[in-house]
Each structure stands twice: as structure tokens, then as C-alpha cells.
Amino acid sequence: MLREKYKQEIEAILARYPVKRSAVLPLLYLVQREYGYCTEEGIREVAEITGVSPTEVREVVGFYTLFYDHPIGRHRIQICDDLPCALRGADDLVAHATRRLGIRPGETTPDGRFTLETVMCIGACHRAPAMQVDLEFVENVTPEVFDRVVEELSRDGA
């Protein structure tokens, strides 16, 4: 139960807003940290804490791209293939990533380690092509840089 494990953190989140519902997004991030994705159990807890119906919380999960209603890999690789990055080789990078990981965008490696996604502009167009790995920026990504990132995250314990 989130409310027991993260009591103080949840109280600190709720204290930031005059209306509990505003805590829905921050609490869903907490759910994803705890369970890996927005589980039904987590959604119900967020609904109870904020006084919003579970349906409305599910609607929020469905609307925002950074929330997942299904299990994903332990590491999320999100390559921007929007216009500014695509003008500097993003489509080739996506092709390289697909070959290197053996999965297509939207898929997760069989060992559950990586989920590969293509995403819209992430605000790194001056260091294109760019990607985010677990929401940290990796910029000026060459195939070598990509392989190095994957190797580092493939070590035991990563």
C-alpha cells in the first residue's frame, strides 16, 4: 500500500495544493516508481487519496504519454524522431536501435530490460539526434553512443 510506504511523501505532495485532485499526476508518478507502471491497484489508491473516481484516474493515465497502463522494460529508451532530429539523422538512429535491440519501437526486449519508443520533440534539437533514457537526456547520439548506453545498462544489476 502506497499510503503506508510513502506516507510522508504523499502528505508533502498533498500539501502543495489547495485541491486534492491536483495531486493525481504526482501520485501517478509515485505509482509508476513503486509498481513499474500504473497498475489497477495503484490507480485505485490514487483515486482514494484524491477523492476522484478510478475511471477519471484511468482517463488521465490514458491521456499522457509518460504514464503506462501495462508493464514496460526496466529501462525506457525514447528516441526523438520529430522533424528537427529527423533533419539530423534520427530515422537512421531508430533503424540502428531496432537492429541493436532486436525490437521495434513500442516493444520490450524479451528479458524485460529495454522498452524502445519513438517520441515527439524533447527539446534537444540543438544536439540532435537526441533521446532520453529513463528520462535523462542523451544527446548528439551516434550509433556508437547508442551502443555504449545499451551496454552500460545491460550489465548485471543495471
Binding site: 502543495r16 491536483s22 499526476l25 504526482p26 499522457y64 504519454t65 515527439m120
Partner: peptide, 10 residues
């Protein structure tokens, strides 16, 4: 003053 994180929506 508080920071509030969005979750991916232009």
C-alpha cells in the same frame, strides 16, 4: 512556489 511536473502532452 512549487514545481509541478506534466506527463507528456503538447
Amino acid at each position: 512556489m512549487f514545481v509541478h511536473l506534466g506527463a507528456g502532452a503538447y
